[in-house]
Design a protein around this nucleic acid. Structure first.
Lengths: 226, 226
DNA sequence: AAGTGGTCTAGACCACGCA
DNA sequence: GCGTGGTCTAGACCACTTC
């Protein structure tokens, strides 16, 4: 018994075999290190990984226990749309549908957490081999966009942001919705069709950067390994 | 400059400020350790975290470079449904709609990767404060279910599995779909309404355990911090 | 062959959170 | 307080990859 991965496996095995039941306190790092004949840091690495995966819950002083109701954690990759299209072996295309300056609707202001007044509104259509793949509806903080405004018909806003604007945090959510009139038209599907929607909001340390809603063509799947 | 989090922040700042441009090779761990006045292990921890987040790409011998097309990684929590309902402050309820033994349809067999012959088919409805919350359609490997079959009207299959069956791996995917006839009826919505669908497949090291499709009531959102 | 990141060790100090 | 996990160090060896 040597590497942290072997130790992680052994600990997992004890949990799966109910040698360490759900909710139970397991021995401390020092004890396990001695039992396995490794340094405490190695045990720490193994247990930390399991905690990150949601299998264990660790607290200073309280010790480490097996999670009672294991909350599985899955890691999602959120690629740039162009990369996603190309990964499918299709040809990426981009069409700028609308670019204007105006005040965002109330729900968008609410999500951003503050009213920035006028913002840059961009609507684009991402194409995979000529077919509509994703419709993007985005509001951008004017202060992050230079004057003149970059050509968002050549480089998608997302890719431009990644390369030119630093940011700190954000959130993302997924839902199902019925395709809106113009969204359905852009994607070439019937209005009201069930579509997968991604909504993202990002902030720089001190101010909002952008809010975006991505409507994916029917059949879209987001998947990952558990 | 001391902790790995500070070093991570400093490295991030250099990337965001384009001092280290996208795709560029950054100094080795040893050099950074000297510059920051810390041990190499500390730099390693900081860079490893950034690599896990998709900001850096690391390869032995080749060195560490800034990811050219940053793939954001988001971590999703996949809770047990009961916990999800209770976290909303609602009362959880469970109703067993169907329990039978039979052969799964072809798409399910395909997903599982092998034909197990007859399987246990369970359909349940999860309720939040009496309203339909999730419809579950599940096929279980007969060999993981004891005889007699547990009371899946009292404890959901998922919770029973968590507590009684060890497993190794699986995958999960999310999509949008139009609600099917019986699903719509169970949820109390119009047939064809846009619903959020979670599909999960899990395997023990050597054999499939279960395939499940969860249809969430309209309005369901899956969200996380980036 | 050589350079880079990945891991391990033995020891140490510290922060947190219970009592 | 005091026990636990979280982190840092200095040094070492190893695995992988490119040259």
């Amino acid at each position: 018994m040597a590497g942290w991965e072997e130790i992680r496996a052994e600990v997992l095995a004890r949990i799966r075999s109910r040698a360490w039941p759900l909710g139970a306190l397991i021995p401390g790092e020092a004890a396990l290190a001695q039992e396995f004949g490794v340094a405490r840091a190695t045990v720490n690495r193994a247990l930390s990984e399991l905690a990150r995966a949601g299998v264990l819950e660790r607290k200073r002083k309280a010790g480490t226990r097996v999670a009672a109701l294991p909350v599985r954690k899955a890691t999602l990759d959120i690629p740039v749309i162009r990369a996603e299209v190309e990964a499918r072996g299709e040809v990426y295309g981009l069409r700028l549908l609308r670019l204007e300056i105006g005040r965002p609707p109330v729900p968008v202001v609410a999500r951003l957490g503050q009213d920035l007044g006028e913002m840059v509104h961009v609507q684009t259509l991402h194409l995979a081999s000529g077919r509509g793949f994703v419709v993007e509806d985005r509001w951008l903080n004017r202060s992050v966009v230079p004057d003149p405004i970059p050509d968002f018909g050549a480089v998608s806003v997302n890719e431009w942001l990644v390369a030119h604007v630093s940011y700190a945090s954000g959130d993302i959510s997924f839902s199902a919705d019925a395709a809106d009139g113009w969204e359905a038209e852009a994607l070439g599907v019937a209005a009201g069709a069930a579509v997968f929607v991604t909504e993202r909001c990002t902030w720089a340390p001190e101010h909002p950067i952008t809010w975006v809603r991505l409507v994916h063509a029917p059949g879209y799947r987001l998947s990952t390994l558990l």
